[in-house]
Nucleic acid binder design. Structure first.
Length: 447
RNA sequence: GUGGGUGUAGCUCAGCUGGCAGAGCGCCGCGUUGUGGUCGCGGAUGUCGCGGGUUCAAGUCCCGUCACUCACCCCA
């Protein structure tokens, strides 16, 4: 087969990497379902007007075209979805009559963005999304719940600590309006660069791009530098002397999210007033998540509250959601050697083959093990036992089974222990039954 | 889309002012003739990204092109 060069932005893992990704997916699904979210999948394509409804022309959408479409044929106007929130909003509108509100769903699917790839940035990647959508109204406590659920997922994974940073769009927009900013979005955009270009760079941007006075820029910078683990950020904001009713509302909401989430999962959330997130449809709480020690890669889970992403004219469907960047997270774990995978194959046991005429005996052993839920495979060739053991060793398979008319034996090739065994009763230790993913020593060494 | 960097063995890379394509790791074999790993010995492996140019001679110099990569933009 001709060798295909790898395509930038379309990651493909080796088997061990796939084990890591599968663990993330399994964990997300388990925790989501534990919290009562129903699994859902939407089609991969949406009409372009659906995706770009909010005027986000700048999205780099991959469009769909039939290879044999005639020149004269009208453009179907379909594109691969770039997130899961917009398709979900469309789904809610279409099925509103058959859904119960507030509607809770999780959705784990690939999404596509035609942007230039970089570390942690891909053109095809998987998101694990949860949203709660109400009809006309949605209780505020769901904005606490999103942080709690995502924090639970992250805490159940063998990864460095993750901190969900929360801000509130009303707080930010109200504050910027209060200091006389003509365009809140451009202020947000500038503030968002604080990590990259520093306070002086942001101050310059605020004056040139966002049209702020030097003193207003200074005030915004002081606001953006506020970061607290409790609701004390509120006093810090008030001390800046900016007054705006929308801001007050945002302060109260943010305080409720931070105290609420930390009451249930201590240390899971911080109020960070520099967080901009999604300059598009978010209207209240916004979330962003950093992996401690790996902040430069960007957020691994983001989302927020949106008041009117979906509306059929008579009713609106406000929602709140958060999305785990599965591919980004896995790429950090693999690229920075943060995890160790016990083996690259599911098999706990390699059943040796004495000679090709006796392969059926080995297959019978394998069937008996499988009947009891023990993943195993039969050696591909009746090589010398040394080679068969090496075959297992290379893949990380911990046990090799030797069929023998005088009585089978099974060898733990890590310790060299070899014992008599019956295929109908022997079991590996539970920790050896499936591949495991553990924090690597380099991760533990991290402070 | 804009700007920088890099393309040589499966992987990581060396290869000077142009002169027989290399190392380490990995892989295969043997020592050890049906129980791996360590050790020793031996072995195989290349479209030097691609195309053109200069030259007696190009991995090396020149032009073009493609890919990858980093940054900007933006984002999971």
């Amino acid at each position: 087969m001709a060798r295909s060069s790898k395509l930038s932005g379309f990651p493909e893992w080796l088997p061990a990497g796939q084990v890591v990704e599968q663990l993330v997916l399994d964990t997300a699904r388990r925790v989501f379902e534990l919290h009562g979210f129903a699994g859902l999948e939407t089609r991969s394509v949406e009409p372009l007007e659906t995706m770009l409804r909010k005027g986000e022309i700048d999205k780099e959408v991959y469009v769909l075209r039939r290879l044999h479409a005639a020149q004269s044929e009208a453009d179907p106007g379909l594109g691969l979805h770039f997130d899961l929130t917009v398709p979900f909003a469309r789904y809610v509108l279409e099925h509103a009559g058959q859904l119960e509100f507030p509607f809770r769903r999780y959705q784990i699917q690939k999404v596509w963005r035609g942007e230039r790839p970089q570390e942690g940035r891909f053109r095809e990647f998987t998101q694990a999304d949860i949203d709660v959508v109400g009809r006309d109204a949605l209780s505020f406590h769901h904005e606490v719940e999103m942080a709690v659920v995502m924090s639970s997922v992250l805490a159940d994974l063998p990864i460095p600590p993750a901190v969900i940073q929360v801000n509130n769009r009303k707080l930010a927009e109200g504050f910027y309006r209060g200091v006389g900013a003509p365009d809140a979005a451009s202020v947000l955009r500038a503030i968002d660069k604080l990590d990259k270009i520093g306070a002086e760079g942001v101050a310059r941007l605020l004056e040139t791009d966002a049209g702020l006075s030097a003193s207003a820029a200074e005030t915004c910078l002081r606001m953006a530098s506020i970061r607290t683990v409790d609701d004390s950020f509120a006093d810090a904001v008030m001390s800046l002397g900016v007054a705006d009713p929308m801001m007050d509302e945002g302060v109260a909401e943010l305080a409720a999210v931070v105290t609420g989430a930390n009451a249930r999962r201590p240390g899971s959330v911080v109020a960070d007033l520099r967080i901009a997130r999604g300059l598009d449809y978010y209207t209240g709480t916004v979330y962003e998540t950093q992996l401690v020690g790996h902040e430069s890669v960007g957020s691994i889970a983001s989302g927020g509250r949106y008041d009117s992403l979906a509306s059929d004219g008579r009713q609106t469907y406000p929602g709140v959601g958060i999305s785990l960047g599965v591919t980004r997270l896995v790429s950090i774990l693999l690229g920075r050697d943060l995890v160790e995978v016990s083996r690259s194959v599911p098999s706990a046991v390699l059943v040796a083959v004495v000679d090709e005429d006796a392969r059926a005996d080995s297959e019978i052993v394998a069937s008996r093990l499988r009947a009891r839920g023990i993943p195993c495979e039969v050696a591909p060739a009746a090589d010398k036992f040394g080679k068969q053991i090496r075959h297992a060793d290379r893949r990380g398979i911990p046990f090799v089974w030797f069929p023998d008319v005088a009585g089978d034996t099974v060898k733990d090739i890590r310790t060299g222990d070899q014992v008599s065994a019956e295929a109908d009763s022997w079991s590996p230790h539970i920790s050896d039954l499936h591949p495991t993913v553990t924090p690597s020593s380099s991760q533990e060494a991290r402070p």
